[in-house]
Design a protein around this nucleic acid. Structure first.
Lengths: 189, 189
DNA sequence: TTGCTAGGTGAACGCTCGTTCACCTATGAT
DNA sequence: ATCATAGGTGAACGAGCGTTCACCTAGCAA
């Protein structure tokens, strides 16, 4: 079995169990009968940078699952294998500040299309944050939920779609801000 | 110090070090001098579901960092604390299939604005995947990199912007597909 | 054919782990 | 005034950890 295969088995364990396997567990994982074999394999994996040990000498994955190479700008294109020195980011950490108050919702309809938010997109929304004029908010207006721009003109608060074929919404009875949209996620295919 | 505070200190350690702290490390973290105190606190945290132990009796976080409540549709609004039974998703796992071949790039310009991709957005692009007609691709055309729709008409492959003020691009010399765009990420504020 | 090496076994080692004793306070209820 | 209890200390424990022995073996080079 190749050494890359070894790494992916160990990382799979980490992703599944949220911790690194012990040497004994690695032995089972890779089909060894001795921890010494594991020790040698792990040393080699560390040498090639496929795994790490932290300052306490404990095994940790090189990068968090989900971290991705972050490159500059589209114009720069895709780097070759030779010149990879890109910064790594975690999309989760990038988008989510306060996990306990953050929700993901699916967008329905085209009322925010001019803001670049399309039917089927996911919106990341943070609950319990103060909404400012111009924020995209998820709000309850007269009993129904919707996502729109929050506007304020002459002391009147109302909701404005990002689509010329829709009209601004003025609440007749109630307007409650449920959450402020902090991010958009779209997946192709 | 409150028990929630204890949890967040432990989870912070996990996020930073990619592993759970040992009881000794937790003692330092929380300012205890005895591991017994840690043992009691951890038991309580497990009881309230703030932490977990796996089948081997090892400490693991309840949910992976970055997982977020996934709700139905914008129309449904934000759930109250009482009726929370939402599915959890990891944005990373949702967007990224093959981490080794995935890159994140920053979008410059407005040439894809009608596809809902705006200046400053991040695009998730997968390298080494076969591009189909209609895919959004990052391509090198006559020496410069750009992101456009991949089109094919009468056997001629060309790039088409999603903005009426731009013209389709036909390669004079070379057209190399660098990566296929698999997702979009936008962050507000 | 011989000897070296990479890659494995199995046992033993000390160390650190999480657990569990007995015990020590403050604090608040009775 | 007293007592129970929540929440801490400090020491001791066995278990399992990662490491490191000596040793085995197949494959390749000389």
């Amino acid at each position: 079995m190749s050494i890359e295969h070894y790494q992916s088995k160990i990382i799979s364990f980490y992703e599944k169990n949220r911790r690194m396997p012990s040497y004994g567990e690695i032995a089972v994982l890779l089909g060894f009968k001795s921890k010494n074999a594991v020790s040698k394999v792990v040393d080699k994996l560390i040498e090639i940078g496929a795994l790490d040990k932290d300052s306490q000498g404990r095994l940790v994955p090189t990068s968090v699952f989900g971290e991705v190479r972050m490159l500059g700008v589209v114009e720069a294109g895709i780097p070759t294998l030779a010149e990879e020195a890109a910064e790594m980011i975690s999309i989760d950490q990038f988008l989510i500040k306060n996990r306990d108050h953050t929700y993901v919702l699916t967008v329905k309809g085209d009322s925010m299309i001019d803001a670049g938010i399309r039917d089927g997109d996911l919106v990341v929304a943070e609950h319990g944050r103060t909404a400012k004029e111009g924020d995209i908010v998820i709000a309850e207006v007269d009993g129904g939920w919707t996502m729109k721009y929050l506007r304020n003109k002459n002391g009147t608060t109302y909701l404005e779609p990002a689509n010329k074929s829709y009209r601004p919404i003025f609440a007749e009875e109630s307007l409650n801000i449920g959450a402020v949209v902090t991010g958009i996620i779209r997946k192709y295919r």
